[in-house]
Design a protein around this nucleic acid. Structure first.
Lengths: 114, 114
DNA sequence: TAAACATATCGCATTAAGACGATAATAAGG
DNA sequence: CCTTATTATCGTCTTAATGCGATATGTTTA
C-alpha cells in the first residue's frame, strides 16, 4: 500500500539530488543548520534561484526548515542522505579505478582532480 | 580530454538515476543481462527512446554492453547500484514512517496512491 | 503603523530533457 | 552483393527545468 508512495518518494529524492547546486547546498548544510541569509552569499546565484532550490530539497523531505524571527533556517532532515552521496561517490571512484586498470589512468585522472 | 572527477561522475550517476524509465530499466536488468530486443517489448516506449535511455545509463557507467552477433546485450556494470537504490528507498520509507508518527499520514498517503 | 529585512513566489525568457518517426549503420543469412 | 534484422543516431517537436528581476508575504523594529 505504501509501495507506490515509496516509488514516488524515491523518484522525488533522486530528482532532487540530480542538480549540482542542490548537491552543493547539501554539502554546505552538512554539520550545521544555516539561515538563508548565510547561504545566499556562499552561492553565485540570485536569491530567488537559491530559494527555489532549497524548496525543492524541502519538498523532497531532504531538508527541514523552521523560522527564527525573520530568518528561515534550513537543516539536513536525515543525515542518511550523506550515506547515499558517499555511496554514489564510491561507485564513481570505482569507475575511475576501473579506468586505471585498463591503463587509461594517465590522461584522465591527472587532469581531473580538484 | 574526457576528464572525469569524482564530483562529475557523481552528478552523472545521479542524473542518470533521476528518471523513472531508467530506474525501471535497471530493475528489468537486475539478475540477468538482456538484449535490446528483449527490453523493447517490456516497455511501452519507442525503440529510439529506449535506446537513448540505455545509452544514458551506459554513459554513466551504470550499464555494460556488448555485441553478440547482431544483438546488443546490456547488463548491470556494478551491482552496488542496487545498494544505492535500496538506500534511497530506505530514506523514502523513513519519510513515510515519520509522517505516520506525526499523524499526518492520512492526507499525504491517501492522495498519493493510484 | 511605517519602515526595514528576510524570504518566498510570480511571470517570463532561455535551456535542457524527453518523445517519436525517419534514417543510418552494422552484422547475418541467403 | 542484396536483404533482413537489430540497434543507434538524427531532426524536430513538445514539455519541463532553470534562472532572474520584480513583487508579494510576513516579521521585527522604530
Amino acid at each position: 500500500m505504501t509501495e507506490k508512495s515509496v516509488l514516488q518518494l524515491r523518484a522525488k529524492i533522486l530528482v532532487a539530488l540530480s542538480d549540482p547546486i542542490r548537491l552543493e547546498l547539501l554539502d554546505f548544510l552538512s554539520g550545521k543548520e544555516r539561515c538563508v541569509c548565510e547561504i545566499l552569499p556562499a552561492f553565485p546565484r540570485s536569491q530567488s534561484t537559491i530559494s527555489k532550490h532549497l524548496n525543492i530539497l524541502y519538498e523532497a523531505d531532504i531538508l527541514d526548515r523552521r523560522m527564527d524571527g525573520k530568518r528561515t533556517i534550513y537543516s539536513i532532515k536525515d543525515p542518511q542522505i550523506f550515506e547515499l552521496i558517499r555511496l554514489v561517490d564510491s561507485i564513481a571512484f570505482r569507475q575511475i579505478s576501473d579506468l586505471a586498470e585498463t591503463g587509461r589512468i594517465l590522461e584522465r585522472s591527472l587532469n581531473n582532480r580538484s
